[in-house]
Each structure stands twice: as structure tokens, then as C-alpha cells.
Design a protein around this nucleic acid. Structure first.
Lengths: 139, 139
DNA sequence: CGTTACCTTTACGTTAACGTCAACCATGCA
DNA sequence: TGCATGGTTGACGTTAACGTAAAGGTAACG
């Protein structure tokens, strides 16, 4: 109707397909209080906002965060807090998260090098096998 | 005895303290077939090798890997396989892992920027509060 | 008007990764 | 000698994060 209204809506199935999760999973996140889609009678209707939140949850999941942790991360997005104490607490959490991410970055770098080494060993083992199949008979 | 014998051993408590896990956790990893410490009668005796394996498991955990996935990673360390088919499979897994790590790297970078932004919003909110406490009375 | 495709709620089941006893040895030391 | 410390094996409990099945509602399609 309104071409300037760029605010899409999604069914639960739409989101499930897009992010490759089951509808059960999405409903579970709602039970956990992490999503609060609008309703058309019984049927859930998801906004772009909801979609973004789901995206954040799933990214958190890929990084090994629990739902509780992801919830915290999401809450950092709108410091609706007008309370200095809460804001300080939020900053502390941000610092914690940052440290955890640094640790993960390190872990990943180390693991990448180890994968490099593992792959080289694989290559060499394969070349060793191939060399032998040219001189000795395979089976 | 032998000063060149740099092969330390550890009790289960040693390792638990070093890595900040419970002994139950370490025994659980053994049940799962991921650790096979030597024994002095009943008592478990961990070698440097065992310690490294535990380290790998815990790093995997920090990266959100399941124990099964960590097990695969650890198996990549000794391509004891003399079978070309297995080596190919191992290479495929290495590629998979690498892709997952790339994804994680991206996730982390994005999340770091978002934490930056969140922190700025916090700062501004706090400064906003402070400004008002100088003109209007607090409480 | 039946069936197909989605959607709903309710509710019990499952798996991973440990936690938490209990009941029991071994060892050093005050 | 007693007891604190640290180790052992069961075995059952717990929590998170969904899976799965049952029973039903609605809208479009042929």
C-alpha cells in the first residue's frame, strides 16, 4: 500500500526458513522472553525488529553463548536505563564480553594455525601413500 | 631423578586447579573417552600429553564446540591414518572447521563494533545524567 | 468439499554436560 | 591414633535447548 512503508513482516515459517531453524526453536525463544512478536488473532507476526533479534540470538549461539548471555547482549542495544548504577553495570558487562571475545579471537588464531599444520600432515601422508603405490602394488 | 626427564605428571586435583574445572568434569571427559590417564593402582596419573588434551577440550568449549566436535579436532593431531580415504575425510573436516572459524571471526568483529557503539551510548547516557545533576537537584 | 499447507497450544521426551551425594580407601602428621 | 586431605567408584539429579507427537483451527486451491 504505502511504498515508503519499508517495514516488512514475517511469518514464523518465513524466519525459520531464512535462518534454518525450526519453528519450535523460534517459539522456544519467545517462551524464554527473548522475542515478543505481534499477533493477528493467534498467529504470530514478526517485524524487522524481531527478525534482527533472532539474528542476534543465533549469532550469539554460534559464538557459544547461552540464551541468557545473548539476552544480556541484546539488552545492551537500548540503554533505556536512566539509572547510573545500571549503566555502570552495563559497562562492566560490556567489558566482560569484550574480554571473552578477545579470548575467543586468540583461540581461533591458534586453532587456525593448528589446522594449517594438520592439513600439511595430511598432505604429506597422502603424498607418501601415493609414492608407495607407484613402486609397490596397491593390494 | 633424571633431570632430562621433563615429563611431568599431574594429579586430577592439579589439573582441576590449573584449568579451573571440577574433578568431576575431568572424570567425565574420561568417561567420554577423551582422556586416558595412566594409573597408580586406582589413582589417575596425568601426563603432559593428557594435560594438553584437556587444554584442547577446554579451548574447544570456549569456542562453543561440543565434546564430539572437540574430539574430532583432537584426532586431527595425529593422522595415524594410513588410509587415503580417511585422510581425505580428515581434510574435509579441516575445511569445515576452517569455515566455521571464519564465520566466528566475522561474528566477533561485528560484535566488537557493536560493543563499541553500546559503550558509547552508555557514556553519553551517563554524561547526560551527570549534566542534569548539576542543574537540577538529585532526588 | 476435501485436501494441502501453515499456523496454534499443550505436554511429555531427549541429549549433553556436568552437579551432587554417598560410601569408601590411603596417606601424612600432630 | 585420630583426623584432615585428596583420591576412588557408583548412581541419581539437574539444566539448557530444544524435539516430537497430539489435537486442533483457517485459508486457499482444484
Amino acid at each position: 500500500m504505502n511504498s515508503s512503508s519499508l517495514t516488512h513482516t514475517y511469518s514464523i515459517g518465513d524466519l525459520a526458513r531464512e535462518f534454518d531453524v525450526t519453528t519450535r526453536t523460534i517459539r522456544f525463544y519467545e517462551e524464554a522472553g527473548m522475542l515478543t512478536p505481534a499477533r493477528n488473532a493467534q498467529t504470530r507476526i514478526y517485524s524487522d525488529q524481531d527478525r534482527i533479534k533472532l539474528k542476534l540470538i543465533l549469532r550469539g549461539k554460534r559464538l557459544g553463548f547461552s540464551l541468557a548471555e545473548s539476552r544480556e547482549l541484546i539488552e545492551m542495544y537500548d540503554p533505556a536505563s536512566d539509572n547510573a548504577r545500571q549503566l555502570k553495570a552495563l559497562q562492566a558487562k560490556i567489558r566482560q564480553r569484550r574480554a571473552a571475545l578477545e579470548q575467543q579471537l586468540n583461540d581461533i588464531r591458534v586453532m587456525q594455525h593448528e589446522l594449517d599444520a594438520a592439513e600439511q600432515r595430511c598432505q604429506q601422508a597422502l603424498q607418501g601413500l601415493e609414492a608407495r603405490t607407484k613402486t609397490t602394488k596397491p593390494e
